[in-house]
Amino acid sequence: MIASIFDLTLCLVILAAAGAATLGRDAFMAVVFYIVYGILIAMAWLRLGAIDVALAEAAIGAGLTGVLLLAALARVARKAGKEPASAASVPATTIATALAALVITIGIAYAFLTLPEPQGLQGHVAENLAASGAENPVTAVLLNFRGWDTLLESIVLLAALLGIWTLAQDEAWGGRAGLRHVTRPGSVLAQFGRILPPIGLLVGVYLVWAGSKQPGGAFQGGTVLAAVWIVTIMAGLMQAPRVADRALRAALVIGPVIFLALAVAGIFAGAFLVLPPAHAGWLILAVEAVLTLSIAATLAMLVFGPPEPEEKR
C-alpha cells in the first residue's frame, strides 16, 4: 500500500519535472528541471532494482549533463550577447510534434499493456556468468556477452567529441579546450577544488573496481573522474589541456584501442572478441580500467567544449 503511494508520488513528481522542462519558457529553468529530472529518474531505477542504471543516471543524467547544458547556455548567451531567447513557438510545428508524441505514447502504452510475461535473458546470463569473468551480471553483459556494443558505444563518445571539436574556430585550433578559469587563492571555490578531488578520485576508482562484483563500472567511474577533473579546472587549480596535446589524445583513445585489440586477438580463439574464461576476470578489469580513463577524458572534454581563440581569454 505505502509502496504504491511512494511509487505513485514518484511518478507524478517525475512527470511534473519532465513537463516543466518541456513546457517552461525560460531556458535556464528548463535546464534546472532537467537536472532534477535526472535525480528523480535515478530513484525510479532504484525502485525497479536496476542499481547500475541508477548509478549511470545519477552520474551522467543528474551530474554531467546538467553541467554540459549550463555551460552550453552560458556559451550561447556569450555568443549572442544576451540571455538566449526561448525557442520561438511555431504553432503548427508544435502542434504536429505534440500530436506525434501523443500518438506514439498511446501506441507504446497500448503495446506495453498487451505484452506477454516479460521473458528477458536473465536465465541465460545466470547460466553463463561463471564463464564470463564477472560476478555482476550487468558487467558480464556489458564487457563480455555484448562487449561489441560497449566497444562501439565507447567510440560513439569519441565521435561526439569530434563533432564538438568541429565547432571550434579555425584560429583557435590546437589551443586549450573551453574557457580559462581563474579563482582567487583561498576562495571558497579554490578550497572546494582542493577538497573534492581526492574524495572523488577514491569514489571513482572504487566504482570501477567494485564493478565486476556489484553495480558500478567504467561508465559510472569514468563519469565521476570526469567530474573531479572538471571541478579542479573550474576551481582554477589546473588548466584544461590543449586539444592538440599528445597525452590527452592518447588518454582519449587508449580505452577503445585496447578493447579493439582484444577483440581482434579473439580470432585466435576462433571468433571475435572472445575472452577465454580462465583469463576473462583480469581482462575485463584491465579493459574497464583503460576504458575508465578514456571515458573520463572524453566526458570532461565534452563539457569543456571546443578551444576558444586566445585573444578572447
Binding site: I155, L162, R246, A263, I267, F272
Partner: peptide, 27 residues
C-alpha cells in the same frame, strides 16, 4: 583462427583502428 573470422575482424576493426590512429596523429 578461421579465414572468415579474420576477414570479419579486418572489416569491422580496420576502419575503427584507423579512426583512432587518425585521432591520435593529427597530421
Amino acid at each position: 583462427m578461421t579465414a572468415s573470422a579474420l576477414a570479419l575482424a579486418l572489416i569491422l576493426t580496420a576502419p575503427l583502428f584507423g579512426a583512432l590512429a587518425a585521432m591520435l596523429m593529427g597530421r
